[in-house]
């Protein structure tokens, strides 16, 4: 479903992603771990075309992101409209929630369907309320984000992303900004999505969660994918010393 082939990404002189390739099948849950600065967020952002890649290519359901293939095989920049459409099919959840503070919880969730998909208001509202119920926040529909705890805000952010009915969910350290006692409620919501068969890529430091839900765990280090294996393999018998060092520090 997602194919990443030999992508490279520089920020100025800094080589952030080095020849990264990764394939994610439909319904698969891929967890990415790795030290700070190893390029995990950048990889997710490239998937969503929030960052452009220098070379290589990414396709989602066969469609290249940000590029189209001409009959002669060359890749040229895709129209912005297609980029927007592709983005709308990928839900993204950020470390710092990024809820819209000037809107109520319900308005946050309705924003995508109304502005992007032009869904009629009543329909968008019904669907958004259902999503809020699903993340356990039906009673907070009229609250503003500042009035919620971090865990509640992140659950709203997940509902907001789901409102666009995405094919893939990308999570960038969804629980890193939360107090420890609030982590569980957010992970529960994500686990619900796993049970529903949502395809997702989750960057996280929650190793227990990774072990429980991941089909595969990717270990990134210094812009490279060093390891791509089942959770059991990675956690019990990592093939790189670098992975072992990282895990011993974090567990």
């Amino acid at each position: 479903m997602i194919v990443i082939e030999h992508i490279n990404k520089h920020f100025g002189k800094l080589h952030v992603l080095k020849d990264v390739s990764l394939t994610v099948a439909r319904g698969e849950v891929v967890v990415i771990i790795g030290p700070s600065g190893s390029g995990k967020s950048t990889l997710l952002r490239c998937l969503n075309y929030l960052e452009t890649i220098d070379d290589g290519y990414i396709t989602i359901e066969g469609q290249p992101i940000g590029k189209i293939k001409l009959p002669d095989g060359r890749l040229v920049d895709d129209s912005r409209k297609n980029v927007y459409r592709l983005r709308s099919r990928m839900g993204m959840v950020f470390q710092r929630f990024n809820l819209f503070p000037h809107q109520t919880v319900l308005q946050n969730v309705m924003e995508g369907p109304i502005t992007v998909s032009k869904t009629p208001v009543t329909e968008a509202k019904d669907r958004s309320l259902a999503l809020l119920a699903k993340v356990g926040l039906a009673d907070k529909a009229d609250a503003y984000p500042v009035q919620l705890s971090g865990g509640q805000q992140q659950r709203v952010a997940i509902a907001r992303a789901l409102a666009m009915q995405p094919r893939v969910m990308l999570f960038d350290e969804p629980t890193s900004a939360l107090d420890p006692e609030l982590v569980g409620e957010v992970l529960e919501v994500i686990k619900d999505l796993v049970r529903e068969g949502m395809t997702m890529i989750v960057v996280t430091h929650e190793m227990g969660f990774a072990r429980e839900v991941a089909d595969r765990v990717i270990f990134m280090n210094d812009g490279r994918i060093l390891e791509d294996a089942s959770p059991q393999a990675i956690f019990t018998n990592p093939s790189h010393t670098r992975t072992r060092e990282f895990l011993s520090k974090i567990l």
Binding site: Y84, R85, M92, L99, T115, A161
Partner: peptide, 17 residues
């Protein structure tokens, strides 16, 4: 905050929207 623009774009909004 830059995250606001990114959250909006990630929903599929154009930069004008």
């Amino acid at each position: 905050d830059k995250g606001q623009m990114e959250a909006a774009l990630s929903l599929g909004m154009s930069s004008t929207q």
